[in-house]
Design a binder for these strands. Structure first.
Lengths: 147, 147
DNA sequence: ATGGATGCAAAGTATTTGCATGAGA
DNA sequence: TCTCATGCAAATACTTTGCATCCAT
């Protein structure tokens, strides 16, 4: 996991300010927190004693996205979540039962598919999103069946 | 394209009512309308002279989802869209420039990947969503570069 | 001190709920 | 007539905007 310091240093060099709010939010993302909505992020900060206005939360999320430090993920329930971009591209396993979200990587992902479509439709790919929904091992083992 | 009549007949048999609102919404989805948000659906209905309350729109969308006639799609902008499920599973090419959405199918989609993950993580797959974002042929040809 | 960052209030948009009324079958 | 379906108003949730103030550099 890349350390907070190098990211902060990069931001500082580009003229952005290392406020306590910014550091707290960044630290939360780096601590391994999974995808969070803006209200969830605000609540988590508050539970840590960091009281941040919701407007600031949204603005900071926009900022971190613009800096490519975080990205937006949509997991099928209509909510916008944000997560640390980290080492780059990955996907999600969403348990529809316990709502837990697991991240995982896929090597040689969908390159071939994109190349083929690109050729056929003259579509220039920028990115893609791929999420899987199902029942995680804990839920299927502990409870038996989906309600 | 499956005709409206067979769907209506199925619903009627199950005891649901074929109201003019329901028929208008279903007809819109079947007419090849792409993914739409609830407000967009309401606006399109209104432009056709069908004035439906927004609450009814949301409830009808829930109903059609429960009947597996439509499904929800998320295309990266935080809005919930709904589309006709049609012949089943497919994906989207979203142009980030003109916002046009093209649907396409992928044979032998991600079955192997799911099987592999299922084995390794004991995750029971229900469904997945896969959307591609980029620049469509029209936008790249007509305008040259992304703004 | 300068300009980015923050807070606050208010507005905008999306979605849900309760209750009374309307209309298919 | 018996429910499903609808409309309306209000509540809730999410997100954005304008403006004054603050604070890291």
């Amino acid at each position: 996991m890349p350390d907070s310091d190098s990211i902060l240093e990069k931001l500082r060099k580009e003229g952005f300010r290392l406020t306590s709010t910014r550091k707290a939010i960044l630290s939360l993302f780096l601590s391994g927190a999974g995808p969070m909505t803006a209200p969830e992020l605000q609540a988590r900060l508050k539970s840590e004693g960091v009281d941040v206005n919701k407007t600031t939360v949204y603005r900071e999320l926009d900022f971190l996205m613009a800096q490519k430090i975080t990205r937006e993920v949509q997991l099928g329930d209509g909510l916008r979540r944000y997560e640390y971009f980290g080492d780059g591209h990955h996907h999600h396993l969403v348990c529809v039962r316990c709502k837990n979200i697991e991240c995982f990587e896929m090597t040689a992902c969908l390159k071939e598919i994109e190349a083929e479509i690109s050729e056929r439709k003259k579509f220039t790919f920028i990115k893609h999103s791929l999420e899987f929904f199902g029942i995680c091992s804990y839920c299927s083992g502990a409870e038996g069946k989906v309600p």
